[in-house]
Simulated scan of single mutants.
Amino acid sequence: MKHPYYSKSQKEKNSITAKIIVLSLLVNLTMGCILLYLNLLLFIFFPIAITFSIIAPFFDIPSLKENNQLIYYSSLFVAEREKNKIILVHGGSLFDYFFVIDRKLTGRERSNFILKHYLEGLLNLISEYETKDTQFLEDVTIKGTTYIINERTAEKFGLKKIETDTIKQLILIYNYPNLICSISIARAKLSFPNLKNINTFEGKITELIKNKDYLTRLYQKM
């Protein structure tokens, strides 16, 4: 797994962290001054919340990886540790998009790049689990939320669309500024995501294993 951030020295990582903190403080200080001038300082909560939504992945993701709570199966596809035979998978965060995606790529090239790394991650996940006991695998479920893969494509992978739970919807609403940044990077232009197009999928790991050949062919084409 090649990820530019994790190949950096600790000094470089610390420098990045410091720059993020300083920039965030400057943004919120500026907004605070503007709101104070307008006698609207009570609304300072909003820029703070937006800033936190955007910068949180730059702290959370490396920390979770370091503590082995997140596993990278590709540079843009991670999974939480299996719990109660459920594997929660996630496409790349804003943190990953920022460091991994080449800014020279067009919007279409970026979408293909992201999908390719999704497929790579799924294939690596399958490779890890396909050798496990069959009876164990029958009960293992993969679950994830994404705006990259549509329902038709997910079905070919062996996944089915399910209703996004209320808590997840609230998290998505809170993280809307983060999603704007992520999708804008993914499409190489300022984009505002429609939350209705963000879907949650789940499926048995055995179904993905059955479709491994299809996933491999699709990956090789990209």
Rank of each mutant, 00 (worst) to 15 (best):
T131N: 14
R110M: 05
S93N: 10
V89F: 09
N67H: 14
I86C: 07
S111V: 12
N84T: 11
S75I: 02
V78S: 07
E128S: 05
E109T: 12
I86R: 12
I142Q: 00
F99H: 15
E155Y: 13
E138K: 14
R152F: 03
D102W: 10
N150R: 09
G91E: 06
D102L: 08
A79C: 13
P62A: 11
F95N: 07
N67T: 13
E82R: 04
G121W: 02
R81T: 09
R103Y: 13
E120A: 10
I86W: 06
R103A: 14
L137Q: 08
L94P: 08
T153A: 09
T106S: 15
L125W: 08
I148Q: 05
F77Q: 03
I114Q: 03
S111Q: 15
V100W: 09
Y73H: 14
Y97V: 00
I162P: 05
I149C: 03
Q69S: 12
F59G: 06
E155D: 11
K143D: 08
L76P: 05
V100Q: 09
I101Y: 02
N112F: 15
N84L: 12
L64D: 12
F136D: 05
E128D: 05
F157A: 04
G91T: 09
T131Q: 15
L105Q: 13
F99V: 13
K168Q: 13
E130K: 09
Y147K: 07
K104G: 11
T164Q: 01
N67R: 14
F77R: 01
I86Q: 11
T146I: 12
R103S: 15
